[in-house]
Write a protein that binds this DNA or RNA. Structure first.
Lengths: 111, 111
DNA sequence: ATGTTTAATCGTATATTTGCGATATAGGAT
DNA sequence: ATCCTATATCGCAAATATACGATTAAACAT
């Protein structure tokens, strides 16, 4: 990979790809599930549930946070995380727009 | 990454992550857009549209095909691709199930 | 048979991701 | 001040992903 070609695509394409990358790992999907189910913010309870080391979970959380999919609030020695539903809504709309609308137009595939 | 930890997650989580990974690159999103817009199957016309070498586009197409998102039919010296809408529908439902339903349950985030 | 066109694959270089242990940091309690 | 707990970060190793040029393969025409 000589140069980074990603920048030659549109911002929408890059953003959607970024979002997809954030959820492109089962561990991160599992983390999001836990956060969604417990409603309230959680920290290292995720480590107990997942088959991963603490540092690895922390790294996944960082990636989800960087992608804007979760929020993290420092609460004493622990950090409380929760899902950023607004961001999720945005990407969900983007995703559905990109494919659902096009799908209606040409339902019949050739091959 | 000593061992592959991905297998310790559920099949649904793995499948959804797999799908997300397939669209986790702007080039592949762009390819899907082209395929959706032209309706009929296309081959190396994609190379003309994208800022990537032929071999790179071919590789991306292979990944999309492996993920089941597109179909490819050999037609003489060329290969005709098109979107597998059924697979897309499946993953779209899976995605929306995972998050939309949970979202309704707990709209208010703590942080 | 030879050449042309189209696409897949190979080999290679580099970048990024994944994962862990060890270490640092920071807040609370004693 | 010292200890404990919780989390973030560092450093490292291994695996994957990205990208390209060169080569191969396959269909078709000349």
């Amino acid at each position: 990979m000589a140069i980074n070609k990603k920048e030659s695509f549109t911002k929408k394409e890059q953003d959607l790809a970024e979002f997809a990358k954030a959820i492109a790992h089962p561990a991160r999907i599992a983390i999001l599930k836990v956060l969604a189910q417990r409603n309230e913010c959680i920290c290292g309870e995720i480590v107990e549930v997942l088959p991963l080391a603490q540092s690895t979970v922390s790294q996944h959380l960082k990636e989800l946070k960087n992608a804007g999919l979760i929020n993290g609030a420092v609460d004493g020695p622990r950090t409380c995380y929760c899902i950023n539903w607004k961001a999720f809504e945005k990407f969900s709309v983007e995703f559905n727009f990109l494919f659902s609308t096009l799908k209606i137009k040409n339902e019949k595939s050739c091959c």
